[in-house]
Design a protein around this nucleic acid. Structure first.
Length: 207
DNA sequence: AAAAAAGTCAACCGCCACGAT
DNA sequence: AATCGTGGCGGTTGACTTTTT
C-alpha cells in the first residue's frame, strides 16, 4: 500500500514508510517498547530503527501490538453496550472503548460505521420488517425493565468525561482509559439498562 | 467467469490540549 | 507570554475482500 507519490509537503520531507506494517516492523517496535515502555514515540521509532513517524508507531501499538487486545467477534453483549454508550456519549470512541476491555477506539469506530449505524437507521424507520428485527434483537431488555417498573435510575455519574478519564490525565479530548484495564466484566453496565426516557434525558446533556 | 458494487478495516490526517522551555 | 514538541482524539481515506449481478 504505497503512497510514495503523495504531494504532501510533510511526507515529501521525511520519506517515511507508510501503509500496512510488516511483521518485521511490528517485532522491532514491540522490542523497543518492552525495553523503554510505550512513551516518547518519536524516539522509540528511532531506537527501533523504524522509518515511521512517532504517531504511526503509537497507533500501531495502541490498535494492534498492545497486550490483551481482542480482535473481531464483537459479542452481542459488547454490541449492546456500544449501542447504549453511543446513545449516551455520541462519537466519543475512546470513552466507549475505555469501557470495553481489550477493544480499541478504532475498532469500535469501524464497527459502528460498518454495522451499527445501519442498524440504527433501520430502527429509526418504523413499519419495516428490518426495524422489527433490529428491535427484537437489541432491545428486549428495555421492554423487560419497563414492565418491571424499574425507573429509579439516577444520572449515572460514572459516564462523564471526568470520571472516565484516568487520574492525572488532562481534560479536553479525554484519554481512553486503557490504563488499568480489567478482565472483561461488563456488569458495571447494568445501570444502562434503562428505558428510553432516560436516553432522551441523557441525550440532552452536552457532554 | 468476470465485472461491479458494497463492505471492511488499518492507517493517515488535521486539529487540539498540555507540558516543557 | 510565546513557541515548540508530543500525545491523543475523531474524521476520513483507500487498499483489500466479499458479495452481488
Amino acid at each position: 500500500m504505497s503512497m510514495a507519490t503523495s504531494s504532501s509537503t510533510q511526507r515529501a520531507k521525511e520519506e517515511k514508510n507508510r501503509g500496512i506494517w510488516t511483521l518485521e516492523e511490528d517485532q522491532k517496535l514491540a522490542q523497543v517498547i518492552e525495553i523503554h515502555g510505550p512513551t516518547k514515540w518519536k524516539s522509540l521509532a528511532v531506537k527501533a530503527g523504524l522509518s515511521r513517524c512517532g504517531k504511526s508507531c503509537r497507533l500501531r501499538w495502541m490498535n494492534y501490538l498492545r497486550p490483551n487486545i481482542k480482535r473481531g467477534n464483537i459479542s452481542d453483549q459488547e454490541e449492546d453496550l456500544i449501542l447504549r454508550l453511543h446513545k449516551l456519549l455520541g462519537n466519543r470512541w475512546s470513552l466507549i472503548a475505555g469501557r470495553l476491555p481489550g477493544r480499541t477506539d478504532n475498532e469500535i469506530k469501524n464497527y459502528w460505521n460498518s454495522h451499527l449505524s445501519k442498524k440504527i437507521k433501520q430502527m429509526e424507520r418504523p413499519n419495516t420488517s428490518a426495524t422489527l428485527t433490529a428491535l427484537e434483537s437489541h432491545l428486549p431488555e428495555m421492554n423487560t425493565k419497563m414492565k418491571e417498573g424499574d425507573h429509579d435510575h439516577e444520572c449515572p455519574k460514572q459516564i462523564t468525561t471526568e470520571s472516565t478519564t484516568p487520574k492525572g490525565s488532562h481534560h479536553g479530548k479525554s484519554k481512553s482509559g486503557f490504563l488499568g484495564e480489567e478482565p472483561l466484566n461488563l456488569e458495571w453496565s447494568n445501570f444502562l439498562e434503562v428505558d428510553e426516557s432516560w436516553f432522551c434525558f441523557a441525550g440532552s446533556y452536552n457532554f
